[in-house]
Design a protein around this nucleic acid. Structure first.
Length: 267
DNA sequence: CGGGGCTCCTGTGCGC
DNA sequence: TGCGCACAGGAGCCCC
């Protein structure tokens, strides 16, 4: 499941190899991943354009094209962008003069849109602040939380609240500060809010440093796994002993999503 | 506005 | 050993 760190890792890797390249030809092997535009038109619009920049917003990856349009990718659960080696599982192949980029997706939830203004796209309009933006201050986070009275863990995963955090890093951040995932936001103490603010940034930074977590299908643009998975303290460890106190980690459902925490350390 | 449930899709992993 | 089925999960959408 690519979250902010995984998408950012892909963005940085791709930036090194596709900026300035012309998309000579597109092989559209699975039409389903293209949303909101007829496949023929999509190909017509995008072929022969040059990739000028690659941006990220939350879990979205945005290619700035030379024709003024934008390719907007969301990898969802199992989307992958692999550079340079043709793959029989490819669903869309972007051919450059001397190489290619493959868009793969096992479960076909991923999507690719062509946009005139990526900031207006559904899912991006109304998105919460970027965790690493300068204007995402502790004061702002405190204010954002003061407007809510909901369980903290699902809220952290809400893209309209905060961009880029998903199921893995929401759980990890809460474990690090000893807060139960079902705690109500209006019951968080000022000290806990401060710790949470820092823990979110810390865990995302650490995950970027270790090139993401390869749970489910995530791999980088060369098909390599991330190194963050082994550093995760609660995610996917239900029933195993807590690394701090050895209490078996508990697994519950929150908003339909698996959630693991330590019943001893997280109150 | 918020929470619950459903939907998309397919490989995995369980029970028998 | 093999079959069949429930399940997971990001995010939009509908409903109450």
């Amino acid at each position: 499941m690519p979250e902010l760190p995984e998408v950012e890792t892909i963005r940085r890797d791709l930036e090194k190899v596709v900026i300035g390249k012309k998309i000579e030809k597109i092989e559209l092997l699975d039409h389903k991943l293209i949303r909101g535009i007829k496949p023929e038109l999509f190909i017509k619009e995008v072929e022969k354009t040059i990739i000028n920049r690659i941006l990220r917003r939350g879990k979205y990856l945005i290619f700035v094209l030379s024709n003024g349009e934008f390719l907007v990718f969301h990898l969802k659960l199992t989307g992958q962008l692999i550079y340079g080696s043709a793959d029989r599982r490819s669903r869309i192949i972007f051919h450059f003069k001397d190489n290619c980029m493959n868009f793969l997706d096992l479960r076909r939830f991923a999507e690719l849109r062509l946009s005139n203004d990526w900031t207006k796209e559904k899912g991006i309009v109304g998105m919460g602040p970027e965790p690493f933006d300068r204007d995402f201050t502790l004061e702002k986070f405190q204010y954002m939380l003061s407007k809510k009275k909901t369980k903290i863990k699902p809220l952290l995963m809400d893209q309209n609240f905060l961009a880029g955090v998903g199921n893995i890093y929401a759980q990890e951040a809460l474990f690090r500060i000893g807060v139960h995932p079902e705690r109500l936001t209006n019951k968080l103490r000022p000290e806990e809010i401060k710790n949470l603010y820092q823990a979110i940034k810390d865990v995302l930074n650490e995950a970027i440093k270790y090139r993401g977590s390869s749970v489910d299908a995530y791999v980088d643009t060369q098909g390599r796994k991330g190194q963050m998975e082994t550093r995760l303290r609660v995610y996917g460890r239900g029933g195993q002993p807590c690394i701090n106190c050895k209490t078996p980690l508990k697994e519950i459902k929150l908003g339909g999503r698996g959630t693991t925490f330590c019943p001893q350390c997280q109150k």
